[in-house]
């Protein structure tokens, strides 16, 4: 059934993609609020300075790599290279999980430096903000899982509809990646 007609002349963007953009705008506001709260709180003094554990760099490498592999997977899909598409998708999935594990290791490393959730607001902010980011990544991994189920169950065929669905996952994945880079740079500069 044709439920709705989209008039292509208006934006030319698939409504589901437009929906995703709106959702991302909301998420940007959420992290903007958290990081501005960080700045406001920091300027009030009584702020413990400490070095981020080096695991955070590994983290960053992993998430950037995962963005690249997913992008390559998308390109392979469009070019009809089935094996490459599936393989790269699987690698991305593993990298996504690796990021979560490393994130957890990062928190443990902070604990090892005797920095706990309630040590000082500076630490609390890092735990909470990275935690909320990780929750967003879990959302991405879930979406990717669904995409993988489709990839491995359906017979391979390049269609507009499936391409479009893939793009939704891809855009969100890049978004969570860029969000992480923003947070990392923010923490370092602060």
């Amino acid at each position: 059934m044709n439920l709705s007609i989209q008039n292509k002349e208006y934006t030319g963007v698939h409504p589901h993609k437009f929906l995703l953009w709106c959702a991302m705008a909301g998420m940007v506001m959420m992290f903007a609020a958290l990081t501005s709260a960080y700045i406001v709180r920091k300027s009030a003094g009584n702020w413990l300075e400490f070095q981020l554990p080096s695991i955070f760099w590994m983290n960053t490498a992993v998430i950037v790599l995962s963005s690249l592999t997913l992008h390559a997977s998308y390109k392979s899909y469009c070019n009809g290279k089935e094996q490459l598409y599936k393989g790269l998708m699987l690698i991305t999935f593993v990298l996504g999980l690796a990021f979560l594990v490393l994130q957890y290791q990062g928190w443990l490393a902070m604990n090892a430096m005797d920095i706990w959730l309630n040590t000082n607001p500076s630490a609390s902010f890092i735990f909470v903000i990275t935690g909320i980011h990780a929750a967003h990544l879990i959302g991405g991994v879930t979406a990717l899982t669904i995409a993988m189920v489709y990839a491995f169950k359906l017979t391979f065929k390049v269609t507009e509809r499936r391409k479009n669905r893939f793009e939704l996952v891809l855009i969100y994945w890049h978004f969570v990646d860029i969000l992480w880079l923003y947070l990392l740079i923010f923490f370092i500069l602060q």
Binding site: N2, S4, H16
Partner: peptide, 9 residues
Amino acid sequence: MANIDIVTQ
């Protein structure tokens, strides 16, 4: 879920 058709002018 219903699919959405993209239609040109």
